[in-house]
């Protein structure tokens, strides 16, 4: 495992308004930036995140563009059924940055609890999108509990348990039905 994946849990307590704003950003992250035409020119990026050992579920994953014209920009992408995804990122390299989850309960866009951030670390792996109009797999990860009761440490580690095909199947219903979903479905058909 890459040493950079070691991290500790970061705990965030925040006000309701801010939480709502973040969730709104998360929900919009995959579609707010690009028009349909741009999305079709770009590449679907997805990966898996397993929260079985975490104290929370996963709401979003942050990717950081580290090359290209958007270098330094963070993308908060949603997590659905254990799969994080963006429906159309332009060619560049994107480093995995953090997984976000929350404890407590959620009422609509409001969280009554604590938001958690699980960092991948400064040397995390990432995904290289080398061409547009394609599909890129960013890998699968799991939150692993470490340390004692009071140390509150977690790490993000590679997770090979869930087949890629299964993740794609889980992803498809959440994709927009204007070409993106069809593209991923065609890709899925290539799996045996």
């Amino acid at each position: 495992m890459d040493r950079g994946l070691k991290m500790d849990r970061r705990l965030r307590r925040q006000g309701l308004l801010l939480t709502a704003a973040l969730l709104g950003l998360t929900l919009l992250a995959s579609c707010a930036e690009y028009s349909h035409e741009q999305l079709m020119r770009n590449t679907v990026v997805f990966g898996g995140v397993n929260m079985d050992d975490a104290p929370t579920g996963a709401d979003a994953v942050t990717l950081k563009a580290v090359t290209g014209p958007d270098a330094g920009k963070y993308w908060r992408v949603p997590v659905k059924d254990g799969v994080f995804f963006h429906e159309g990122l332009p060619p560049a390299s994107y480093q995995l940055w953090a997984v976000w989850g929350h404890s407590g309960f959620k009422l609509g866009p409001w969280i009554f609890g604590t938001v958690y951030e699980y960092d991948f670390g400064g040397q995390a792996d990432g995904v290289r999108v080398t061409k547009g109009g394609s599909i890129s797999y960013a890998g699968a990860f799991r939150i692993v509990k470490q340390g004692g009761i009071f140390s509150h440490k977690f790490s993000v580690e590679p997770d090979g348990k869930r087949p890629v095909k299964e993740m794609v199947q889980a992803l498809i219903p959440h994709l927009r039905d204007d070409g993106v979903r069809e593209r991923v479905a065609r890709w899925l058909a290539l799996f045996k």
Binding site: G4, R10, R12, Q14, G15, L18, L22, D119, G122, Q123
Partner: peptide
């Protein structure tokens, strides 16, 4: 060297300074 040093975009209402120091070795 440090790659990201932030208090994160959601830390405006943190109860205490909670910095995110990501680095490379």
């Amino acid at each position: 060297y440090f790659t990201d040093v932030t208090d994160s975009l959601d830390c405006a209402s943190c109860h205490s300074a909670n910095f995110n120091w990501q680095r490379a070795y």
